[in-house]
Nucleic acid binder design. Structure first.
Length: 487
RNA sequence: GGUCUCGUGGCCGAGCGGUUAGGCACCGGUCUGCAAAACCGUCUACUCCGGUUCGAAUCCGGACGAGACCUCCA
């Protein structure tokens, strides 16, 4: 397929857009860092998963066979290295008076639910950290054997200094270890680490840890970053195509993954590193600690105090697709309202295609419109440009509908199928479900029929009374050329 | 403090050396009993100061402002 060869991806590793050349022709291996399930994912978390869903969908659309692995972190990571050694899941478990795996199960059910609501395609596999303890231990052993890690007191640390003699620590994030030093040193005064930049691969268990595993170094927990190395290696191999995640994982998480892979297998695990940018609220990153977050379900149900009304998942997804995945995106009420109207214009246009009258020839260039869809997405998954092109197509459709342009039958079929492909399969949007309340429908038919009679009789008082009364009940009546509709 | 990113019209948001981004709002028009809706059209911006260039929102330097990472984080 021609378009497969024109795809360009921005590689965080090189800082440039590169032609995408998969390691194995026609196959793509993609790993994305998933959520830590100690609480319900917020909208910012969802944006990253939605963006990688877009990427997954477009790769599939291009005809690649994609193996998409997104992990679930169900082993708590130590919250910090400055003395407080409580893990995030254990902490949630204590607060909610549950077992750790109960917490994970509870939030995973919610997470799976959100994926359906936001129309995310399920990954090929969603492996869990706790299901791969053995694999993690084996990789740690290999790193030790290669001389890039050491064990102290039941814990194992990555030997950054030793590693830097053979590899470039900071290759992804551009960080220089020397520059990190001053700030961090004081925090780790009593640390077991030999060097401040060393990070834990295995952590000795605390007496009150809820999750403890056996290892060659004694009972303990896996370190911060090793799970992703273990699971990506297991399902995709030592070297695969794409590794993705949120921008905030670039350092240290992804940098350390690279170090672990190089330290055990001698190579960077992924050819292309992709980072999705953050979701902002009023110019600031959405995060639990800032308190400026809301849950993906709250905004659909209209129960967050940040917004006056509820928005359908489709609209939210469309809104996010209007910004490029590598840009930050500001969530504001006016922007969401704008997206809602824009999306409905787009779907109205699409619904119009099948009703168009066809002509012998086309006055519009359908091939170049369709080509622009591919050009947009091939340029590092530029969904905003794709959407602009779709709007352009809608304008043409409306012109044809108004008799100011023509389209041939074959062009109509092409445009219809490609617009469907891009809007639904690639962008993952679905046409908003229309009202089909079986009890309300006949009532509305009756009421609108009565109103139409009044209008025919020029009884404006009655017809407006019906319209206003319905409006008060939340039903909007629209008089169009083809008759009256309601919603 | 260190590293890095960004500053686009009323709002959101593309563009990354020369060509209309797009959506929403506003305004004008078509349609309509009126209204709404729908459709068409209009609106021409790049924080500031220097520099490079025939030409800069786009490259370079500086100022100011905002944000991210350096600690769990999508």
């Amino acid at each position: 397929m021609e378009n497969q060869k024109n795809l360009q991806i921005y590689n965080s590793l090189s800082g440039k857009k590169e032609i995408f050349e998969p390691l194995h022709e026609n196959h793509v291996g993609m790993y994305v860092c998933g959520p830590t399930l100690y609480s319900e994912p917020h909208m910012g978390n969802m944006r990253t998963f939605i963006n990688f869903d877009l990427i997954y969908r477009y790769l599939l659309h291009l005809g690649f066979k994609v193996k998409y692995v997104r992990n679930i972190t169900d082993a708590g990571h130590i919250t910090n290295s400055a003395g407080n050694e409580e893990d995030s899941i254990g902490k949630a478990a204590r607060l909610e008076q549950m077992q750790s795996l109960e917490i994970v199960y509870k939030y995973n059910v919610k997470f799976q639910d959100l994926q359906r609501i936001y129309n995310l395609l399920p990954p090929s596999i969603e492996p869990t950290a706790t299901g791969h303890i053995q694999e993690q231990i084996e990789i740690i052993e290999q790193i030790i054997e290669n001389g890039y890690a050491y064990s102290v007191n039941g814990s194992v640390y990555f030997d950054t200094k030793r590693y830097m003699q053979d590899f470039n620590y900071g290759i992804l994030s551009g960080r220089k270890v020397d520059e990190l030093e001053n700030e961090t040193r004081s925090l780790n005064a009593q640390d077991e680490k030999r060097f401040f930049a060393d990070f834990a691969l295995w952590k000795k268990a605390n007496a009150d840890d809820m999750q403890i595993w056996r290892s060659p170094w004694g009972n303990g927990n896996p370190g911060w970053h090793i799970e992703c190395t273990a699971m990506s290696t297991k399902y995709l191999g030592k070297h695969f195509d794409i590794h993705g995640g949120g921008m905030d994982l670039k350092f240290p998480h992804h940098e350390d993954e690279i170090a672990q892979s190089c330290g055990s297998f001698g190579c960077n695990p992924a050819k292309y590193w992709m980072h999705a940018n953050m979701l902002n609220v009023n110019g600031q990153k959405m995060s639990k600690s800032f308190g400026n977050y809301f849950l993906p379900k709250e905004i659909i149900e209209g129960t967050t105090s940040l917004f006056k009304k509820a928005y359908p998942a489709n609209v939210l997804r469309f809104f996010m697709m209007q910004a490029h995945y590598r840009s930050t995106l500001d969530f504001t009420e006016t922007a969401l309202d704008a997206a809602e109207k824009g999306f409905s214009r787009l779907t109205d246009g699409l619904n119009l295609i099948e009703k168009l009258t066809v002509s012998e020839t086309s006055s519009i260039d359908v091939n170049s419109i369709v080509a622009s869809f591919y050009t947009a997405m091939n340029d590092d998954f530029n969904a905003p440009i794709l959407i602009a092109s779709l709007f352009d197509a809608v304008r043409q459709i409306n012109l044809i509908n108004d008799g100011n342009a023509t389209i041939s039958e074959s062009d109509k079929d092409l445009l219809e199928s490609e617009m469907n492909n891009f809007l639904f399969d690639v962008l993952g949007l679905e046409i908003a479900t229309t009202n089909n309340d079986s009890k309300l429908n006949p009532v509305m038919d009756l009421v609108l029929d009565l109103r139409q009679q009044a209008r025919t009789n020029k009884d404006w008082t009655t017809s407006d009374k019906i319209r206003d009364g319905l409006a008060a009940a939340g039903i909007v009546v629209k008089d169009g050329k083809e008759g009256t509709t309601w919603s």
